[in-house]
Design a protein around this nucleic acid. Structure first.
Lengths: 211, 211
DNA sequence: CGGATCATTGATGCTGTTCAACAGATGTGG
DNA sequence: CCACATCTGTTGAACAGCATCAATGATCCG
């Protein structure tokens, strides 16, 4: 998974907003008139199905942009999964910054394609190992991760069930690859072992990006 | 799945090339100095793993563009799966057409995200039904589909095995939803039934786009 | 402390994979 | 034109991994 998520500096942030944990940022069908940059907290972008199921398409952490879509209406939901502060960019002014928009779209495409490969071809434990590795990279390479998201969020992101995620984490713990100070605080004891558990799909083209 | 695949007319096609069935168009690691528009035939974009596994990210039919990627090197393989004629666009000149590139990137992102949802949340028969529906739409809504791709290609696209794809097709046939004149020639006998088999993930936000 | 939410663990079953054999189509040479 | 080889697709049986159902444990917050 690419650690890079576009952090382009688009000028003219119109405002800064703060969302509480669980608060909706936009809904499916809402106008795509803004995009956002997280300054603190974390955001979940997902689709919800009639039967209650959910597919999380992406998480966005501090520094990362999201909310850019092609059509006039959003095709996904975005919610804060922790108390989150964001810069808001109005679409009108932003459209004069085509190169930045292009970078955003391309990054979104690449991440979706990598995620596709993971969900299509990796086992449960590989997905979880990859998830933790990616998160560690995006947090700047820390070995201690504080998960902003619940097990249910992780499950919906990795296309698994909450129980399977839990069992995978337990197995990583039993193998001493990670340790849990808390259900939401993961310490990566053996980064090499974790990486080797990620399997083939971990960006074979990329030379083990340092994070 | 969105039927729309960008067919933007970018001027200055530098050349027209023809590829034989099975011929490689670009490889992982190749320079991303061109992009392509299929004029006849079909193209498969995929990633190949060390263990021989493969994930097909997209197919591209007549009129559709592909090959646009962010970095300097391709992250996937592109191959012709039938005799294919394509217009080639050099990257340099094309970069003056930012709006068109943006449309390409956004379309790629959306398709990858929709594909993600399908692979993450749909059963085998739902995936196959959706695949056939999407293909029919992209071919202009024909009820008779000539599949350019093999069962293996379909399996790698839908993240299933060839056997499971075969069984799903057999079941659709036994339910009289489709008929096979030939393994590669599918006739959609009951489009409504086929659509209803696609399940939730079939673009809930889109009002059943006609194709 | 007590209730609610979140996470872990266990037992069982289903879906899709794997391994294996067969069938149909395509192509080649005698 | 038919025998033979090859490639592609279908079908069957057994298995594995993950989901499901159910219960227990941990954490948070009043």
């Amino acid at each position: 998974m690419p650690a890079k998520i576009v952090r382009a500096q688009i000028p003219r942030a119109h405002s800064i907003v703060t969302c509480q944990r669980g608060e909706q940022i936009y809904a499916e069908g809402d106008a795509t008139d803004k995009c956002f940059q997280v300054s603190a907290g974390a955001v979940r972008v997902s689709r919800v199905f009639a039967n209650g199921g959910r597919q999380v398409v992406s998480f966005h952490l501090a520094g990362e942009m999201f909310g850019f879509e092609a059509g006039p209406q959003h095709r996904f939901f975005a919610e804060a999964i922790a108390e989150t502060r964001m810069a808001v960019f109005e679409r009108g002014p932003v459209q004069q910054h085509l190169p930045e928009l292009l970078a955003l779209a391309v990054d979104g495409m690449e991440r979706a394609q990598e995620h596709l490969v993971v969900i299509g071809r990796q086992s449960a434990i590989e997905r979880v190992a990859l998830f933790l590795t990616d998160l560690s990279n995006r947090l700047g390479g820390t070995r201690q991760l504080t998960l902003a998201m619940s097990r249910q969020d992780i499950a919906d992101y990795l296309a698994l069930t909450i129980e399977t995620v839990s069992r995978a984490i337990t197995e990583l713990r039993e193998r001493s690859v990670i340790a849990l100070r808390h259900a939401r605080i993961v310490y990566i004891m053996n980064p090499d072992a974790l990486r080797s558990l990620c399997g083939d799909a971990a960006s074979p083209s990329e030379p083990a990006r340092a994070g």
